[in-house]
Nucleic acid binder design. Sequence first.
DNA 1: GCCGTTTTCGGCCCGACTGTTTTCAGTCG
Length: 563
Amino acid sequence: MRNREVANILLKIADMLQIKGDNPYKIRAYRTAAESIYHLDEDIAILYEKGRVREIPGIGDAVAGKIGEILKTGSCEYYDRLSKEFPAGLLDMLVVPGLGHKSVKLIYDNLGIDNLDDLLLACQRGEIRNVPGLGVRSEENIIKGIAEIKQRSNKTGLGIALPVARDFLFYLLQSPLINKVAIVGSIRRGKEMVSDIDILVASDAPAALYDFIKDFPAIIQIEQVEPDLIRGELGSGIEFEVIMVTPSDYFHSLVWTTGSKEHRERLFAGIDRQDFKDLQSETEVYTRLGLDYIAPELRENRGEIEAADAGNLPKLINFPDIRGDLHVHSNWSDGVERIEDLATAARSLGYEYIAITDHSKSLTISGGLSEERLQAQGKVIDALNAQAPDGFCILKGIEVDILKNGELDFPDRVLKELDIVVASVHSNFKLDADQQTERIVEAAKNEYVDIIGHLTGRLLSRRSGYEIDVDKIIDTCACYHTALEINAYPDRLDIDEHIARKAKDYGVKVAINSDAHHRNELKLMAYGVTTARRGWLEAGDVLNTLSPAELLKALGKGADTQD
DNA sequence: GCCGTTTTCGGCCCGACTGTTTTCAGTCG
């Protein structure tokens, strides 16, 4: 699939056009086209061969031509020309929070700065404050922002690394020299941010593998570090390691390379690993250690070894336990799909229900619903439910904005008519911890609020969450029977595993939701399930493992469903 | 640059906050 690469080039064109100060609608057209390609079900190269690229929404003659060039040559003339005008480092500078296209251009024009390192230096020397329109605060914020970026650097989100790792795995599976292969390391443990892709290979002929591996198309650099270790970098900028072992060493190596370091060091302390040859499964490794099998997501030395010893490990939630999705956007607000198409996609995942939770009126940029539009949407949903042949249930919901003062964007009179109310913060991220906490506490207390959406507001690739007192909010949720969301969107995974585990301890239910804006994003649920597993959650801790009728009963809605 | 069409051109998402300024431009969601 070249879709990601093609979309990325279009996004870079959009960024460079924006730095240039080009027509905003043209810029948006490139972004829309990129988004469409990113969400395609099919390989863009195949669509192009069939002459069907123009059928993709948001792609006209101009962009279609550029896509053709990119597929043939890896780039396009228009992109190359813009790249000469605007150094690549300018696009890196856009990642600094608060620094947009205009400011980047201003700094470039005035000081000739075209990369993050020089930008930091200029801030430290107090040069940025002399750029017209920028001041001392800008300097401080840039320094702070770059520090945050550096902290994240060399880490990649699981949502990016896992698909790349799977592509690599499928490639390796084609080799007859490879006996067994697995993704290991932090990706296998489901960590939200990972530093590299680790792959374990069992082979009788490890020396012959290099020639096969080096031909994996995504590899841009590769090196045989040791006879049993190949290291390199993939085109997406992610480093990888392929660790090679003999088939008889495979299963204990699987435990060893999956880690974590702390987990394996405790497991094998004072034990000769030579005793673990010729095993048939990973479970057997743990059995020989006198322990119950420990799922990879738990292997962080956070009590799992003691629990396995005592037979007390949780029975972790699995994807098939999920029976519905309680946070989905349709084209009534900023989603792109019709409600009926989302329902069809949800059915194909084996769900029994989805809640349509579009934005509320204050979020104007996202086409937030007015009270009238919400009611109209409810009638459409009623009609769709009435036609449903199989009892699949579309729940009427809203993602209601929590306003600055803790009030909700709709009055109780409106909320009480809905099946699912998700309340979320989308504004005023910089309130102090007391105000921010109080604001969310007020929302959690509302008797019609069922779930607090993406509690901390963090975006893993861009910003840390807002200041809140998590304990106080969890306490409130426990008292008022309000659930917390694990937002499965890979850049959010909010709440994280630590808060999820704490919620469980307090008896607060968790809802794992995709927050999908496109039918393909419903599948992102899997990342949320991984986070839930890392938080030791069982099916019984999760709201959307209930049937529609049980769910509505649990939420005190009492309305009849078609279940 | 894309889209729709009773239009092959005119419209295409808005409003609050921040930081720099004294009335506004840039950024963000």
